[in-house]
Amino acid sequence: MLDSLFLKKFNEIRVRHLGYRSPYEGWEAFVDSSFHEDRRFTDDRELARTVRASYVDFMGGPRTVRLLGRFARRFPRTATRLLTLLTPGLFRWLVGPMERTGKHELRITGCTFLGSTTPAICHRICKVPTEEYFTDTLSVPLTLTPDPRTTECRVEFTPYAPPKPGPGA
């Protein structure tokens, strides 16, 4: 039940950011809007901005996201550990069942998004924008490694490391 509420909320958020309401409901609406999003945005930066805006809204807005980023910068190992523990329960509705495979690693055992779309859409709408969002906005470097053949995806959170000062700094 919680999964269907999260999906409904995320679909409504995407309607606001995409300006497109799918004629379908539930998961089918999400997949349909993803195909629409892929066709509409030919510029990857614009697509990433739209995906990021949806993520920010879903996670409670800019203020909440800034607080989460500050927490991750201050307590990087704790943040990655918490994400590894919480993600399987909180995002099953979006990607399917997950299992922890390490301290900071997960495996999506059958990604419903990858299985419902295409490898290209997975790359453009999920992999690249999600990695950028977690790394740049939440300060938790994330690497997604999808396997289109098996629809599995490796998820690796890396504790935040502040940028090193450049020469002359």
Rank of each mutant, 00 (worst) to 15 (best):
L5T: 10
F6S: 12
F6E: 07
L7Q: 13
K9W: 03
F10T: 04
E12I: 02
R14L: 15
R16I: 05
H17I: 08
L18P: 02
R21N: 03
R21L: 06
S22L: 07
S22D: 05
W27D: 02
E28M: 12
F30N: 00
V31R: 03
V31K: 04
D32L: 05
S33D: 15
S33G: 05
S34E: 02
F35R: 04
E37I: 02
R39Y: 04
R39K: 13
F41I: 06
T42Q: 14
T42L: 15
T42N: 10
T42K: 15
A48Y: 01
T50K: 12
T50I: 07
T50A: 14
V51P: 00
R52A: 09
R52I: 01
V56E: 10
D57F: 07
F58W: 08
G60H: 08
G60V: 09
P62R: 11
T64K: 15
V65W: 07
V65A: 02
V65S: 03
V65M: 08
L67F: 04
L68V: 10
L68Q: 14
R74T: 11
F75A: 02
R77C: 00
T78N: 01
A79G: 03
T80M: 02
T80D: 04
L82R: 13
P88I: 12
P88Q: 11
G89K: 12
G89T: 10
L90A: 15
L90D: 06
F91V: 14
W93I: 05
L94T: 01
G96Y: 07
G96V: 08
M98A: 11
E99A: 12
R100Q: 13
R100L: 01
T101S: 09
T101I: 14
H104Y: 15
E105N: 07
R107K: 14
T109Q: 12
C111M: 04
T112D: 03
F113I: 08
L114V: 11
G115V: 00
G115I: 02
T117C: 09
T118G: 03
P119R: 05
H123D: 15
H123E: 15
H123M: 08
I125K: 01
C126Q: 07
V128Q: 11
P129I: 11
E131I: 09
E132S: 10
Y133K: 03
F134L: 09
T135V: 07
L138M: 13
V140I: 13
V140R: 07
V140A: 15
P141H: 03
L142H: 09
T143S: 08
L144D: 06
L144K: 09
T145G: 07
T145P: 01
D147V: 08
E152Y: 00
V155L: 13
F157P: 08
T158K: 13
P159H: 06
P165V: 09
G166T: 08
P167Q: 04
G168S: 12
A169M: 04
